[in-house]
């Protein structure tokens, strides 16, 4: 009888599911990958086979060209779609079930079952409602492998309605200017747009060119974003009094000079800390995150009630301390290539 949980091994380059010889969110090319969601620190090209939700596979095809043909005119990559709630049998007697993680379109937790033991790998997740993806579902398990991007008690994401109100108030106060919102191109941007629509803002929203295709992909997956226009097709005057969305890297870039005196806003969980916002020259910080904040992380650990909690990336020191104080067994995994995205 092998030691408990010896079939699942955290390695620096990903989580290795030994009997099936496949990897979860590997940071280098492998034969067979199980991918939680489309962000670059979890998904990448070059794998032989990728098992993911249909939306995540579509995002990977768009971002990492996983559907590209080789010289012989064949597509070497094999995409294996799994719906939410669907279980697939992997070699070696491992069952994998994809469960909504509430992070971005297509994002999933992966529940692995083997020899009567249950392990959940969350990828990234949040517990707040998001009009662009189904909500996180709590899965009881023996080992809970969680992220900790915002794993400090200072992080408390306010209700998104408050942040939308801040944005729309500012927009109304400066009819001659535009509000430029820096938002991560996959997930955050579409969520902000969808929330603006939910708040009743139905004017056209202008997009940086780098966001167009991802927005179209979201629309094809049933997320309604209303009328979107490209900045490059319009004049300064047309964009007065409008909301413009761009990747965070474009906020202070030359690109922004074509806009009518923009009010610089940024949608990110880091905006909770004033100095972080000031460093980025942000005038209007919007505390909007697609990750769990401190109370969501600790609540989830409690609800899942696993024997052990493993922490993949983020501010693991504080979350480990919390687990220790609450008599929960926990360990930090040193994962390579997971970084603080502009979230």
């Amino acid at each position: 009888m092998p030691a408990p949980f010896s079939w699942i091994r955290p390695e620096p380059h990903g989580i290795h599911v030994v009997p099936a010889d496949c990897w979860i969110d590997p940071s280098r090319p492998v034969d067979k990958a199980l991918v939680t969601h489309g962000h670059a620190d979890h998904a990448r090209g070059g794998h032989g086979e990728t098992v993911a939700t249909p939306a995540t596979l579509a995002i990977m095809e768009l971002r990492y060209r996983t559907g590209a043909e080789d010289e012989a005119g064949e597509v070497p990559h094999r995409a294996v779609p799994v719906e939410y709630g669907e279980t697939i049998r992997l070699p070696g007697g491992v069952d994998a079930t994809y469960v909504p993680a509430g992070h971005v379109l297509g994002s999933a937790q992966i529940l692995l079952e083997h020899a009567g033991e249950r392990v959940v790998v969350t990828g990234d997740y949040k517990r707040r409602p998001d009009p662009t993806c189904p909500p996180f579902e709590v899965q009881p398990c023996d080992i809970f492998i969680t992220e900790a991007t915002f794993g400090l008690p200072v992080f408390c994401h306010p209700p998104i309605e408050d942040e939308m109100a801040k944005l729309l108030d500012r927009l109304a106060a400066y009819p001659e200017r535009c509000v430029l919102v820096g938002a991560y191109a996959l997930g955050k941007a579409q969520r902000v747009i969808a929330e603006l629509r939910r708040a009743g803002h139905d004017a056209p929203i202008y997009l940086h060119g780098a966001m167009e295709k991802m927005c179209r992909l979201y629309e094809e997956h049933g997320v309604e974003l209303g009328e979107l226009r490209l900045v490059s097709d319009h004049t300064k005057d047309q964009m007065r009094g409008a909301i413009v969305v761009c990747p965070p890297s474009a906020l202070n870039d030359r690109w922004s000079r074509r806009l009518p005196d923009p009010v610089t806003a940024m949608a990110s969980g880091w905006m909770r800390v004033r100095q972080r916002a000031r460093q980025r020259n942000v005038e209007l910080p919007l505390v909007i995150s697609d990750h769990a904040d401190w109370s969501e992380l600790t609540r989830t650990i409690d609800e899942v009630d696993a024997q052990e909690t493993w922490i993949t990336h983020g501010r693991e020191d504080a979350l480990l301390r919390w687990c220790q104080l609450h008599q929960r067994r926990a360990r930090a995994l040193a994962m390579v290539g997971r970084e603080d995205e502009d979230d």
């Binding site: 400090l152 200072v154 800390v273 301390r321 919390w322």
Partner: peptide, 11 residues
């Protein structure tokens, strides 16, 4: 410990 980690991060 949580105070110190937070204070160091926020500055």
């Amino acid at each position: 410990v949580l105070w110190t980690l937070s204070r160091d991060f926020v500055g």
